[in-house]
């Protein structure tokens, strides 16, 4: 893509042109230099949307709930962007992206934009470019962005880092499902939803979750600052202490029940974050982590460009043979690259 074509696309997307938005999402999904150019152009226009993550085990009703939330936001006259992630098959590299099936009613609303995304090998419930796709929608002016994860049910800090508000969806079920909740999912939840409340066992599920939250609050602070791993000076000032206890709500997405309450809870969480300073804190942490990641990646690329390939390979062999240790080997390579520059 040449630069003037890219500038045109960006201008069109910022003005809300849906074809341009779709194209730019493909570009950022593709990665590489073009993606970085697009992202740096749209960055000044991001930061306005409220990003809501929706995660939970497969089949808990995430897509159905996303569709109901979108309808509720449309009633408030807010525009809605949706990014729905499904897994890429590790065998073929292909994917079937089926979340739109549950979003049929939204398909022709000009103020809703739905994009399906395959994980393309990335783990943790999101694709590498999910946040970037959300940024494109944010820049294009969508007020609320709903991000549905794959729902592996574990290690989903990625969504909690990216979203302002994270919903963890559960459904009434057996004892093992309640076990699965313990594996870190409570720590990322800002709001817990027991969907399929029309099925038996919903109240028990709510009670079990409340009990678990009580246990948790005894010895951990609700401390989303820890979601990010940021080094030294980038980490900035004091972490805001906070006391948000995730509410546990019941919904029946299939019949649209409990949605208003959920929308209110999401709004309350946003307001809480603003008032407590947590919003600022998370914005800071997110930016710091992103900068750190880009610095790391860029420095490594530059360094690797300067060191001859055979030197790298030889060093690896030396390390394997215990002739050199990896720590001084790295220092020597860096010193050598600096001399070459």
């Amino acid at each position: 893509m040449d630069i003037s074509r890219m500038d045109d696309l960006v201008a069109q997307a910022l003005a809300g042109d849906r074809r341009a938005i779709a194209r730019l999402i493909s570009t950022v999904e593709q990665g590489g230099a073009e993606a970085r150019q697009v992202l740096s152009r749209i960055y000044p226009h991001t930061g306005r949307a409220h990003i809501v993550g929706i995660t939970g085990a497969p089949g808990t009703g995430k897509s159905t709930l996303v569709a109901e939330l979108a309808k509720a936001y449309r009633k408030q006259n807010l525009s809605v962007g949706i990014v729905a992630v499904d897994p890429t098959s590790p065998f073929s590299g292909g994917a079937i992206l089926g979340d739109r099936i549950r979003m049929r009613d939204l398909a022709t609303d000009p103020n809703i934009f739905i994009r399906s995304m395959a994980t393309r090998g990335s783990l943790g419930g999101l694709a590498r470019a999910t946040a970037d796709a959300a940024h494109v929608l944010d820049a294009a002016g969508y007020a609320v962005i709903l991000v549905e994860t794959v729902g592996a049910g574990q290690s989903e800090v990625d969504i909690a880092r990216m979203a302002h508000t994270t919903l963890v969806i559960q459904m009434p079920a057996s004892g093992d499902e309640i076990q699965a909740i313990k594996a870190g999912i409570l720590e990322i939840a800002d709001i817990i939803v027991v969907n399929k409340a029309d099925l038996p066992g919903a109240d028990q599920a709510v009670a079990a979750l409340e009990a678990m939250l009580d246990l948790n609050s005894g010895h951990t602070e609700w401390h989303h600052g820890r979601l990010f791993q940021i080094e030294g000076v980038l980490a900035g000032g004091d972490q805001v202490k906070h006391s948000w206890r995730p509410p546990v709500l019941k919904t029946c997405a299939l019949r649209g029940e409990g949605i208003e309450e959920l929308v209110q809870a999401i709004a309350a969480h946003l307001q809480y974050q603003r008032e407590s300073g947590l919003h600022q804190q998370r914005e800071h942490d997110r930016a710091a982590e992103q900068l750190q990641r880009i610095l790391r990646y860029t420095l490594l690329e530059q360094l690797l460009e300067r060191i001859p390939k055979h030197a790298l390979q030889e060093t690896v062999e030396h390390i394997v043979a215990r002739e050199q240790d990896p720590y001084s080997a790295a220092e020597a390579l860096i010193a050598q690259a600096r001399l070459l520059s």
Binding site: S89, G93, L97
Partner: peptide, 13 residues
């Protein structure tokens, strides 16, 4: 079949 051939298939129902 398209997925197994490495394509990304958006299925709408």
């Amino acid at each position: 079949a398209l997925r197994d051939a490495g394509m990304e298939v958006i299925y709408t129902g």
